[in-house]
C-alpha cells in the first residue's frame, strides 16, 4: 500500500490521528464481535445461574432447529424477491430515462427520493396501503376476487414486505443502471443498428451484456441490503408473522437475543450472519479489483 513519496515524519502524530477511529472500532466493533464469537460457545441455564462451555452445540442445535431452517428459507425468498423486483423495475426505468434528452433530469429527480425514506417508514406506508380493513389495495383486489389479508396469509405478508423493501431500493438501482447505460459507447449501438438489429435485439445482445458488471455489483449490494438493512421493514409491520412467515435472520437474532433472552443461540446466529457478510464483502471487493484491471 502506497504513501506519498516523501512522507511527513513524526513519531507520535500518526497514532494520535488514527486514535479516535481505532478506539471506536475496537470498543464498538471488534470487542462485541469477539464477544459474540465467545458467547456462541456458551450456554446459560434458564435462571442465568450457570454458564457452560458447550463448543459447537449452539450451532448444531440451530441447524437442527426447524424455526431456524425456516428463517433461512424465508430470508432466501425475501432477498431474492426484493433484489429481483427492485432491480428489474429500476432497469426498465433507467432504459426509458436514458432515451430521453430534455426530460432526463426531471424524471431522475422524481425517481431518486425514495432512497431517503427509512426502511421502517417504507414498511408503514405500504402496510397502510395494504391494510385489510381500510387499505386501497385490498379494496381493489377484492374487485378481482382476491381476498387480501397479510395478518393471516403468509404469502400476502411476504409479498407486502418484499414490495416495501424493493420500493425503497429502486432509486439506488436506478442511479447505478443509468450511470452504466450512459457509459456504453453510442458507436456500438449505431453499428448494430446499421447491421439491422432491432431495438429489442440491440438491448439483449449489446446493452445488457455490457451492463453485466454493474448488474452483478448491484445484485450483491441488494442482497446485503435485503438481508441486513430491512430490519425496520419487518419490525414496524409484520413482526415476523404470521406464523414465522416473514421472520428473516436479522429479525430472529434480535428476537432471540432481546425478547426470548436466548443469548447463546442469538450469538451463534450473529456469528453465522457475520460469516455471510464477510463472504459477500469479499465477493464485492473481488469484483471491484476486476473492474479496475480492465
Amino acid at each position: 500500500m502506497q504513501t506519498k513519496r516523501i512522507p511527513f515524519s513524526s513519531r507520535w502524530l500518526p497514532y494520535a490521528l488514527l486514535a479516535p477511529q481505532v478506539i471506536v472500532t475496537l470498543i464498538f466493533f471488534i470487542w462485541p464481535a469477539s464477544q459474540a464469537l465467545y458467547q456462541s460457545f456458551l450456554r446459560q441455564d434458564i435462571f442465568g445461574l450457570r454458564t457452560d462451555f458447550v463448543w459447537f452445540d449452539n450451532f448444531s442445535r440451530l441447524f437442527a432447529d426447524q424455526l431456524y431452517l425456516n428463517s433461512l428459507k424465508v430470508t432466501l425468498i425475501f432477498s431474492v424477491g426484493t433484489t429481483f423486483l427492485s432491480m428489474s423495475i429500476a432497469l426498465l426505468f433507467a432504459v426509458m430515462v436514458n432515451r430521453m434528452i430534455r426530460s432526463r433530469d426531471s424524471y431522475t429527480t422524481f425517481l431518486v427520493w425514495p432512497y431517503a425514506v427509512a426502511p421502517a417508514i417504507a414498511g408503514v406506508l405500504w402496510w397502510f396501503i395494504f391494510n385489510p380493513s381500510i387499505g386501497i389495495m385490498p379494496y381493489m383486489l377484492k374487485g378481482f376476487g382476491y381476498d387480501w389479508n397479510h395478518r393471516s396469509s403468509s404469502t400476502d405478508a411476504m409479498i407486502l414486505v418484499i414490495i416495501a423493501a424493493a420500493w425503497k431500493q429502486i432509486s439506488y438501482n436506478f442511479l447505478f443502471f443509468l450511470a452504466g447505460l450512459q457509459s456504453i459507447p453510442q458507436s456500438l449501438i449505431e453499428a448494430a443498428a446499421i447491421d439491422g438489429a432491432s431495438r429489442f435485439k440491440r438491448f439483449w445482445t449489446i446493452v445488457f451484456p455490457l451492463l453485466s458488471p454493474i448488474t452483478f455489483f448491484l445484485m450483491v449490494v441488494n442482497i446485503v441490503y435485503a438481508m441486513f438493512d430491512t430490519f425496520g421493514v419487518i419490525h414496524a409491520t409484520t413482526e415476523g408473522g404470521p406464523a414465522q412467515a416473514t421472520n428473516i435472520l436479522v429479525y430472529k437474532v434480535y428476537r432471540d437475543g432481546f425478547v426470548n433472552l436466548n443469548l447463546g443461540s442469538s450469538a451463534a446466529q450473529s456469528v453465522i450472519l457475520m460469516g455471510i457478510v464477510i463472504v459477500l464483502t469479499v465477493i464485492q471487493f473481488r469484483y471491484i479489483e476486476r473492474r479496475v484491471n480492465y
Binding site: T25, F29, I30, W31, P32, A33, Q35, A36, Q39, F228, D229, F231, V250, V253, Y254, G257, F258, L263, S266, A267, S270, L273, M274, V277, I278, T281
Partner: peptide, 13 residues
C-alpha cells in the same frame, strides 16, 4: 473490518 460488521449482525454484544 468495520465494513464487515453491521450493527444488526452483532446486536446483543
Amino acid at each position: 473490518l468495520t465494513l464487515m460488521l453491521p450493527v444488526e449482525v452483532r446486536i446483543v454484544p
